[in-house]
Structure formats: structure tokens, C-alpha cells
Simulated scan of single mutants.
Amino acid sequence: MESPLSKFGNTSPVKSDINQQNIGVADLKLLRVFKTVVEAGGFTAASNDLNIGLAAISKQISDLEIRFGMKLCTRGREGFYLTEHGKVAYQACLDLFSSINQFRDTLNHARREIFGELNIGIIDNTITDRKSPVVGALSEIHRQAPKVSVRLHATQLEEIERGVIDGRFTCGIIPVYEEKTDFDYFFLYNEISHLCCSYQHDLFTLAPESLTDARIESASLIKHFYTNHSHQNPTLHFQPSNAVAVQVEAVTMLILTGNYVGFLPEHYISRFVSEGKIKALKPEDIYVTTPFHLVVKKGAAQNAVMKLFLDALKHEPVVADVHSGAR
């Protein structure tokens, strides 16, 4: 309820230090009392709403007038009236508390939201792996925290490791051939690789009974830069090779020449197998399991964005029906 303007006008202002001090908690309490009095239409009605006595209300209104250096209202036999200054103060009071409520609501809303940036370094050529949870996790991040900025970098292993160490990447998703003390590791899934040859290689057309270990060992094996696969297949002993490759696509190119055999991820070769260009040699017996981990810098604190991403990676992976790429 808005009280009428006082017919007596304004009295001489009281000296105040309001220009020298900020609005504090005590001022807010007095302003709440003033607002309640105005909306109740007087001290008596406000005393019930505030659950305090008339003398206390009168004292607090007087304190507020002294604090602001202006007469805000008249009270007495003539009733309760706002002065011109009082009317301005009441409107300002409404604006102030509206702003406070908006500020509170904004913070409460922000508290339920997640902001930040997620820079991910990921080894390339993994999108065809149905066991990879990355696509599903990124979808979950967007669903739960659409204001998070996501940057995805597909690059080589060493670049990802350097980026995580120097802080360019929040995390990396990589094949782990050996664990290093620079990182904390979170296991995601295993990638299976098979020993492969192309349709131009002599081993391609051999019958299963003719595909002996000795015949396979006679082939020239592409040395993968990151790991020596022979220790995971102790029955095979290949001769030193003059072919070295770093990325999966590079291994594939060398295999397609018909001069070499090499290990390729199972998910990656499906396209070439269906086209009759590549064949896995004794896939049930000769294969390599490579664990994929999410890695972060050793001891790095996990913020809300990182925790959400880790949790999202635990969900069922989204199947990606994509058949090309390059590591």
C-alpha cells in the first residue's frame, strides 16, 4: 500500500554521512522496516507484520532518517504520510530490493549451472571404434552444461602429452603403451589390433592351413613407432624391418603397397576388409590389446567441468557409423 504524500511538506534535512559511506547490512535492515511500514500504511499495522513494538519501529525509522539526512514520513494524530523525500526513498527501496532479489536468483541459477572450458587432446582415427565413449560423453556435456566451451584437438600422441603437461589441454584421450609419472590415468576401454596384409601380399590368398607362424614371420613387419607388438605375441619372431610408421594411416599405406604386414585397429580395418583390400591374419590368435585412458597432468585439481566429463565418459558409448579418418 502506498501512503499519501504529506500535506506538511518536507522539514529541514538532517546532516548525514551517506555520501561518505556505503550501504551496509544495518541500512538494509532499516530499509526493510521502512518498506514494511509504508506498505502496511503505518506503524501500528507494521508492528504485527514485523513482530516488534511501536517504539522499536519509531526508533528504527528515526535512525534511517538520520542516516539518510532526510525526513521520510510524518506520524501522529494526522496519520502516517510519506514526505516527498520519503516517496523517492520508497521507490528507490523497491528498486534496490528488486535488484537484490535478481542478484540472488542469478547466483542461485548459476550455482546449478557449470561454466568453463574443456580442451581435449584426442588421438585421431578413433571415431570408428564403437567402444569409445567420447562422442556420447561430449553429447552429455552439451546436454548438462551447454555453456561449457568444448575444444577438441585430434593430433599425435606426443603432442597430446606435451599439451597436457604444459596446460594447453585440460586432458588427453590416448592409447597407453606404458604409463608415465607425468600423468594421472583413467581407464576408458581397450582397442584391439590385428596383424594385417593387403590383397597384393603373398599371404593374402594362403589357405588357413598354409598360414603357419613361419610363413607369417617371413613377412616384413612394419615397426610401429610407439610400441613393439612382438612381446604380446611371443610365438612370433619377426626379422628387423626397414619400414617404420607413426600413425595408423601411415601403417595402412605401407600395408597397401603389398610389401609389408602390420598391426591395425580392428575398428579401423573394417572398411578395407569389406572392400577386399586388407585381411587380418589369424585374427583369433594374433592380436594386440591397447588400453585407452583419459590422462590429466599429475596431481591436477579436477574442477566441475572435468568431473562432469569424467562422469559422462562412464556412460554407454554412442555408436559412430563412420569409416574414415587418420591418426
Rank of each mutant, 00 (worst) to 15 (best):
I122S: 11
L281S: 05
T11N: 14
G86C: 01
V134P: 02
K223S: 15
K298A: 15
I66G: 14
I66Q: 15
I52G: 08
T128G: 03
D182T: 10
G262M: 05
I100M: 04
S47M: 04
E159S: 13
S324F: 14
R327A: 10
D311W: 01
F115G: 10
N48M: 05
E78I: 05
V176H: 05
A145Y: 03
S12F: 05
I216Q: 04
A320L: 04
M306P: 00
I192F: 01
M1A: 14
K279G: 07
E113H: 09
A207P: 01
T106M: 13
S270N: 10
F238Q: 06
P283N: 07
E140P: 06
R168S: 13
Q60E: 14
D129C: 03
N303F: 04
V148C: 02
T155N: 04
L96S: 06
P133A: 04
R104N: 14
F186R: 04
Y90V: 05
R104F: 08
D184V: 02
V261N: 11
K71L: 02
H267P: 00
S220W: 03
Y287S: 06
Y226N: 11
E78T: 10
T205M: 06
T290W: 00
R130Y: 04
L211R: 07
S139C: 09
C196G: 01
V33R: 10
I127H: 10
T11C: 11
S99E: 14
I57E: 05
A312M: 01
A56P: 04
A137P: 00
T106F: 10
E159W: 07
K71M: 03
S6F: 03
P265Q: 04
L203N: 03
G325Y: 01
T181N: 14
R104Y: 13
S132N: 08
N259P: 03
D17I: 07
T181A: 15
R143T: 12
L31D: 09
G325V: 00
H153L: 13
G76C: 04
Y81W: 13
R327Q: 06
P291H: 07
V37G: 13
S274F: 01
I57L: 10
I120K: 08
I57Q: 09
N108S: 12
S99G: 09
R327M: 05
L236V: 00
L94W: 03
E284I: 00
R327K: 13
N51E: 07
K282L: 02
R143Q: 11
T126K: 09
I122A: 09
G325M: 01
R67Y: 02
E113F: 05
D202V: 12
K279R: 15
R215P: 01
